[in-house]
Design a protein around this nucleic acid. Structure first.
Length: 115
DNA sequence: GCATTGACTAGGG
DNA sequence: GCCCTAGCCAATG
């Protein structure tokens, strides 16, 4: 279990219900802003219920994937009060976690996880 | 250690 | 908004 992977999971678990974050956001919070692609790889492995992988979506509100069951992901998100289209999240800007979190909070989070 | 792969993204047409 | 391209990172064989 690499350090980066551990951080990514920690960030994902931090996403509150009814909110979503993009792969890019997660990578950023994990300390590697340009590792979004790797984040996708990690998610593929960690399909355990302990981490709300379904709250991690693609940039611009794209759903991304969910193992062999993308539809399930849509259901889960809708169950949390999100408006989900065929392959997109409506009101994405309003439910995107990263934009709702204050800079203060992100700074604090980084300080705690950097060490 | 190199090559391939992927639940990605930003930019240009 | 959609399609294509190039760039990027960690995991895998």
């Amino acid at each position: 279990m690499s350090d980066f992977r551990r951080r990514v999971l920690a960030v994902v678990r931090r996403i509150p219900p009814g909110r979503v974050a993009t792969y890019g956001d997660v990578a950023d919070w994990a300390g590697r802003p340009r590792a979004w692609r790797a984040v996708g790889n990690i998610m593929r492995e960690c399909h355990e219920p302990a981490t709300p992988c379904h709250r991690v979506v693609g940039a611009g509100g794209a759903l991304g994937g969910y193992g062999g069951n993308p539809q399930l992901k849509r259901e889960l998100l809708r169950a949390e009060g999100l408006q989900v289209g065929i392959a997109r999240i409506r009101r994405f800007r309003d439910v995107r976690w990263a934009t709702k979190v204050s800079k203060e909070a992100s700074r604090k989070w980084k300080v705690e996880t950097e060490k």
